[in-house]
Computed example of a mutant assay.
Amino acid sequence: MASHMPSNYAEDRLHRYLAHWTRDPSNVAELDVGAISWATEEERRDRQKKYCEVASDYYDLVTPLYEQGWGQQFHYTPLTPGLSIRESMTAYEKTFAELARLKKDMRALDLGCGIGGPARTIASTVGCEIVGITNSAWHVERGNALTKKAGLDHLVTLVHGDFLKLPFPDESFDAAYSVESLCYAPDPAEVYREIKRVLKPGAPFTFHDFAMTENSPAPWYYGPAGDIWWAWKTPGWPDFWKVFKMWPPFRGLAHTVYRLMIYVGWAPREVSTLMDTMWYCTKSVAIGGKMGIFTPMYVFVCRKPAREKE
């Protein structure tokens, strides 16, 4: 776990992130449900203005936890019969690369690349060059280190930047894609304009994102729901420990342990708030999936016009 942590992973970072989600920044040790669930329009606009800061603070905190508990791929996936969650993710990323029209020797842009898990899968499979962009400096540091360790630094590079102001010249990419990240942009239209600007004429742009739907494929949500019964059904139980850590009784026990650590002074009180916040989000995703009204895997395949009049 220590190797997953940024060097300045400290209490001030925890305070800074939690302060975005409370009406009383002097008391971030308590989960402010009202500020999260019933935010005013003014509060929502203020968070949108600071979206880069909010997102960066969030991912700086949770990326080490995601990597330890979920792996290097921070997305949901259609589950393939007989494959574990991780194997299904890798299989889906290869399928996604085909949908995205990615070819050998292309130069592709990965928007919201995280620590580069999908980029490494795609680059090693297809043989294309991928430039990933993220607004988290820790993602860049950690992701480039993992890429070098995998021997793929000649194909994959992660850079620090903003969706709304892409630091690339016009028409400098053969393709672009995004996996569960554009939904966080405060102005999707501006992001699409920037993507169009950096793509060459006729280049494809593919994204997989969250959507509210009338029907949702199941059981993609069994991981975040902590449904250990589904985990048992996969031969060899490859997902059991991963899903077990999301199982409500285990999470309740972990929460009790953390509260004890807080009580004896081994952990700051704010850790409990962070756990509550993450649980609140994860539970909402799983409930939406069970109700069939939400899917995180809606895929769009687009193309920049080959001629301006198209």
Rank of each mutant, 00 (worst) to 15 (best):
Leu99His: 13
Ala218His: 03
Leu155Glu: 00
Asn8Lys: 15
Tyr66Pro: 06
Ser272His: 02
Met89Phe: 14
Val191Phe: 04
Leu146Phe: 13
Thr256Met: 11
Phe244Asp: 00
Phe163Lys: 09
Arg269Ala: 11
Trp38Thr: 14
Glu214Tyr: 07
Glu67Thr: 13
Arg269Ser: 13
Gly292Asp: 12
Leu14Pro: 03
Val243Arg: 01
Lys200Glu: 09
Val285Ala: 04
Gly265Met: 09
Ile195Thr: 14
His255Cys: 00
Pro204Ile: 12
Lys290Glu: 05
Glu141Arg: 14
Lys148Asp: 13
Ala119Leu: 08
Thr121Asn: 01
Ala306Val: 06
Leu65Phe: 06
Arg86Glu: 14
Tyr221Asp: 11
Cys183Arg: 08
Leu146Ser: 10
Ala306Leu: 01
Gly202Tyr: 06
Thr80Lys: 14
Asp24Arg: 03
Thr157Glu: 09
Phe163Trp: 15
Pro217Ala: 10
Val301Lys: 08
Trp229Tyr: 10
Ile36Thr: 04
Pro217Cys: 06
Pro186Gly: 05
Asp227Leu: 10
Gly161Lys: 12
Ala19Arg: 08
His139Tyr: 05
Thr206Met: 12
Gly292Met: 12
Glu41Cys: 01
Gly265Pro: 10
Pro6Lys: 11
His75Ile: 11
Leu166Asn: 03
Ala231Asn: 00
Thr121Glu: 11
Ala225Leu: 08
Leu166Met: 03
Gly114Ala: 12
Ser56Asn: 10
Met89Asn: 08
Ala189Pro: 08
Val54Phe: 12
Cys302Ile: 14
Asp162Tyr: 07
Gly265Gln: 01
Gly114Arg: 04
Arg23Pro: 06
His208Glu: 02
Ala218Lys: 02
Leu274Met: 15
Arg120Lys: 02
Val264Lys: 00
Pro188Thr: 10
Trp70Met: 12
Leu155Cys: 00
Arg101Cys: 03
Ile228Gln: 01
Phe294Ser: 05
Ala19Ile: 11
Lys94Met: 04
Met261Asp: 05
Cys183Pro: 07
Met212Thr: 03
Gly223Arg: 03
Pro248Tyr: 04
Thr282Asp: 13
Cys302Arg: 11
Tyr222Met: 00
Gly223Thr: 00
Ala55His: 03
Val33Phe: 02
Ser172Asp: 11
Arg269Val: 09
Arg251His: 04
Ala19Glu: 11
Gln68Asn: 09
Asp170Val: 06
Glu308Asn: 00
Gly288Trp: 13
Gln72His: 12
Arg303Ser: 15
Ala19Phe: 11
Trp279Lys: 15
Phe168Lys: 01
Ala100Cys: 14
Val156Pro: 01
Val264Leu: 08
Asp32Tyr: 07
Gly132Cys: 05
Pro186Arg: 08
Met297Asn: 07
Trp38Tyr: 15
Val54Asp: 07
Glu310Asp: 07
His15Cys: 09
Ser84Gly: 15
Arg307Ala: 13
Asn27Thr: 13
Trp237Leu: 09
Ser88Pro: 06
Gly69Val: 05
Lys309Met: 11
Glu30Phe: 05
Lys104Arg: 09
Thr40His: 14
Glu93Leu: 07
Leu199Pro: 06
Glu42Met: 09
Gly127His: 06
Phe294Leu: 12
Ser3Gly: 13
Arg44Gln: 11
Ala175Glu: 08
Lys165Trp: 08
Thr80Gly: 09
